[in-house]
């Protein structure tokens, strides 16, 4: 007897989820949520791409400055040479 009630409960729950739940998922408010979620994803994507570009540019900065340092070192090492006649 208890089992039957349990089953009936599940059935009712299923019907409610199937109708009201579907309604909720397709409602105007839900659509708003989806829109915002999509916007968020797009923003996230943009910010990821922006970060990638920024990292790249900063790597370039570091590389060029490093090259400068090495060039300076090289020119420092060049000693003046005097040759006897």
């Amino acid at each position: 007897m208890k089992k039957i009630w349990e089953r009936a409960g599940f059935l009712a729950g299923g019907i409610i989820i199937g109708t009201a739940g579907l309604k909720a998922l397709t409602s105007r408010d839900a659509k708003k949520v989806y829109t915002h979620a999509t916007a968020l994803t797009l923003r996230a994507k943009d910010s990821v791409m922006g970060t990638v570009s920024k990292v790249r540019e900063n790597c370039g900065d570091i590389l060029s400055e490093a090259q400068d340092i090495n060039e300076n070192l090289e020119s420092d090492e060049k000693r003046e040479i005097v040759e006897s006649e």
Partner: peptide
């Protein structure tokens, strides 16, 4: 000017 080195300017 964000960054500059001898032969590069950003």
């Amino acid at each position: 000017i964000e960054h500059e080195s001898r032969r590069r300017i950003r």
